[in-house]
Amino acid sequence: MILYEREVYLSLLARYNEALWPAQLLALLLGLLALGLLWRPRRGGDRLVAALLAVAWIWVGAGFFLRQMASIDYAAPLFGWLFVLQGLLLAWRGLLAGRLGGKPGCKLGGSASPAATRIGLGLAAFALLAMPPLAWLLGQPWPALPVFGLTPGATAVFTLGLLVAARGRARWLLAAVPIAWCLLGGFLAWELALPAAYPLPLAGLLGLAALFLTGRRPA
């Protein structure tokens, strides 16, 4: 049961985005950089992308859930710490061990199947470039919009996309929270009548299916 209403959530989201402006532009640029590395892998790209994702998850956990949402949602601290934990996991696997997907030094995109790279790129591009305007078109007023790196849904879908394009069993560990959030976020969106977030469960299931199918290929 959600104990706050749509207008309250949108008001909170708007004030949160206003307070952070122009961090949205920086998040967009960094997201584009990550997409570029997915498309054209570079040496050290894995570590850079993992660092970006880790910062994004820790920020959403601390800045969005623990600092903002906790005032209206008693479950927010739980979500906040889960996001922080996911950020630490990404930092551990991707940044320190250099294994976002599988073997040390594996390259994003190039190490997975072409289909997985395309699906992953599609999911990440949807989160980064399509979710904000879609939300606006579906009635969420500016600046109460989802943003990769600042709000949970876009961050979860973007991360899932990158993991689909990576390789190895570690992807499952790192994809668990993003998939779970996609499903839960869809439920919350339904309860709050936010149609722009209705695709979240679909993205989560698509990512799960892609992980499963590409995971069967020999590494």
Binding site: L3, Y4, E5, E7, V8, R15, S71, I72
Partner: peptide
Amino acid sequence: TSRTFNVGDDPGL
């Protein structure tokens, strides 16, 4: 006041 008064810090609300 469940839900209806849970408006956070928004001064207008």
